[in-house]
Structures are given as C-alpha cells and as structure tokens.
Simulated scan of single mutants.
Amino acid sequence: MSIGQTIKHKTQALKGRVTERIGRTTRNRRLQRQGRTDRLSGNLKQVGDKAKNAFKR
C-alpha cells in the first residue's frame, strides 16, 4: 500500500464525516446518506489495505 493511497482513503473518510455532520446540522437526509457512504467506503478501503499488508509479510 502506498502512502498516496493511504492519504486518499483517509481523506475520503474525513470528507464523509464532515458531509454527514453538515447533513445532520441542516437536516438534509441526502447529505447524511452521502456522507455516511463516503465515510464507510473510505474506512473499508483502509481495512482492505491493512489486510493485504498483513498477509504480504
């Protein structure tokens, strides 16, 4: 896993967290769903990369 991919996945999770929070504040369910989706997909990508590295060694 490269450093670039790590940063990309962490920023996606952070962006999702921020979007979800904005959706909650404005009571916009579409933004909440979009933020939750971004956050979860970023976290899942991080987990997948960690699993790859664990079996690589």
Rank of each mutant, 00 (worst) to 15 (best):
G4W: 10
G4K: 11
G4S: 13
Q5H: 13
Q5L: 15
T6I: 14
T6R: 13
T6G: 07
T6D: 07
I7E: 08
I7P: 04
K8I: 10
K8G: 06
K8F: 15
H9T: 08
T11W: 06
T11C: 10
T11Q: 15
Q12K: 12
Q12C: 04
A13M: 07
L14Y: 06
L14K: 05
K15Y: 10
G16Y: 02
G16V: 04
R17L: 08
R17N: 05
R17T: 03
V18M: 13
T19Q: 11
T19F: 01
T19C: 05
E20Y: 02
R21G: 13
R21L: 13
R21W: 07
R21K: 15
I22M: 09
I22A: 07
G23L: 02
G23I: 02
R24I: 04
R24P: 00
R24D: 14
R24K: 15
T25A: 12
T25C: 06
T25Q: 14
T26V: 04
R27K: 09
R27D: 15
R27G: 04
N28W: 05
N28L: 03
R29L: 08
R29Y: 08
R30N: 13
L31W: 06
L31P: 05
L31S: 10
L31N: 11
Q32A: 06
R33L: 07
Q34T: 06
Q34Y: 04
G35C: 04
G35N: 03
G35K: 01
R36G: 03
R36H: 13
T37Y: 11
T37A: 14
D38E: 15
R39T: 01
R39D: 02
R39S: 03
L40N: 06
L40C: 00
G42K: 01
G42S: 04
G42F: 01
G42V: 01
N43Y: 08
N43V: 07
L44W: 01
L44G: 00
L44T: 03
Q46W: 00
Q46H: 05
Q46L: 12
V47C: 02
G48T: 06
D49N: 12
D49H: 06
K50C: 00
A51I: 14
K52H: 10
K52A: 10
N53R: 08
N53T: 07
N53C: 00
A54V: 04
A54F: 11
A54H: 09
F55T: 09
F55Y: 10
